[in-house]
């Protein structure tokens, strides 16, 4: 049974922030993580965000602002997101099931901060910034800094994540997103990789963005790998080196576990594959 003692569904952001000011309420978006938690020792006071219209996608000159309550399904079909942030769209399409994607939100996925959250590696590649507001303040924190550990963030008890601002990458950029799991749906990532290759006019990699989920305690950009790729021409050898480096980083940071003998070579192979897929241009260009 869900033992929720107080439930409030405000109709305006101001009202919501007033309630949150007490520091006692947990914001409820899609509930796909929160409600299962609430069956156990989860939160008892909930603030439902569904009346706040926080699900809009807004395009500005230099960035795209995605409302925190945009559902994964919306990210899959929104014209702006699919065109300008194809990685995010692809990652959202791999979350849970249709039912979970219809309820679950981008903001929820980020605040829950699971090491295997599907959208986070995509967001990292877009230098995404979380917009946090409280009754008397508003601040912007890069998603990379926002998530501080497994299931931990720097959000204050009186703060609300209202949107996430993403920077589209300059053209031409080739992307790919790969996910390793144990089945085709309701599939918790055992590994996810988001890759962006920004190309110069001569066929070389001008810059790269490579992020990994479920590989490190916290999803993160692999800047070591990005540096290795920058300035080089795409080649099988280069991508294999990048894969090997990623595997090295994983062992260094996550330590050796029962799954390491398998995961080390598989991460290397998958990153190589993701890079080759991005370079082929098959997956998508933005």
């Amino acid at each position: 049974m869900i033992d929720v003692t107080t439930y409030i569904r405000p109709g305006s952001l101001e009202e919501a922030l007033d309630v949150l000011a007490s520091g006692e309420f947990t914001p409820l978006a899609g509930g796909t993580d929160l409600i299962p938690h609430a069956r156990g020792r989860g939160p008892r006071k909930m603030l439902d965000l569904s009346g706040l219209s926080l699900d809009r996608v807004t395009r500005t000159a230099s960035s795209i602002e995605v409302g925190a309550c945009a559902t994964h399904s919306e990210l899959c079909r929104d014209a702006v997101v699919t065109k300008a942030l194809p990685l995010l769209s692809k990652a959202a399409a791999l979350v849970g099931t249709k039912q979970v994607r219809n309820r679950g939100t981008l903001g929820g996925n980020v605040v829950n901060a699971s090491p295997c959250a599907d959208t986070v590696p995509a967001l990292l590649n877009h230098d995404a910034v979380a917009v946090l507001v409280s009754k008397d303040a508003r601040r912007k924190v890069p998603v990379e800094a926002f998530i501080t550990g497994p299931y931990a963030t720097c959000i204050g008890p009186n703060e609300l994540l209202t949107s996430i601002v993403c920077e589209p990458l300059e053209k031409p950029t080739f992307v790919s997103f790969l996910k390793l799991g144990r089945r085709q749906a309701v599939n918790i990532s055992r590994m996810s990789l988001a890759v962006c290759l920004m190309m110069d006019g001569k066929g070389s990699i001008k810059g790269a963005r490579v992020s990994a989920g479920a590989v490190f305690p916290v999803a993160r950009r692999m800047r070591e790998v990005e540096r290795l790729l920058a300035g080089e021409s795409p080649s099988k050898r280069l991508f294999a080196e990048a894969g090997a480096l990623a595997a090295q980083l994983m062992v260094k940071e996550s330590g050796v576990r029962w799954s390491t003998p398998y995961k080390r070579p598989v991460l290397a192979a998958l990153l190589e594959r993701a890079l080759a897929e991005a370079a082929s241009g098959n997956f998508g260009e933005q």
Binding site: T97, R182, R183, Q184, A185, V186, I188
Partner: peptide
Amino acid sequence: DFSTYIIPTAAD
């Protein structure tokens, strides 16, 4: 539980 005991889904 069904997040760690993996049964196939229709998608599989």
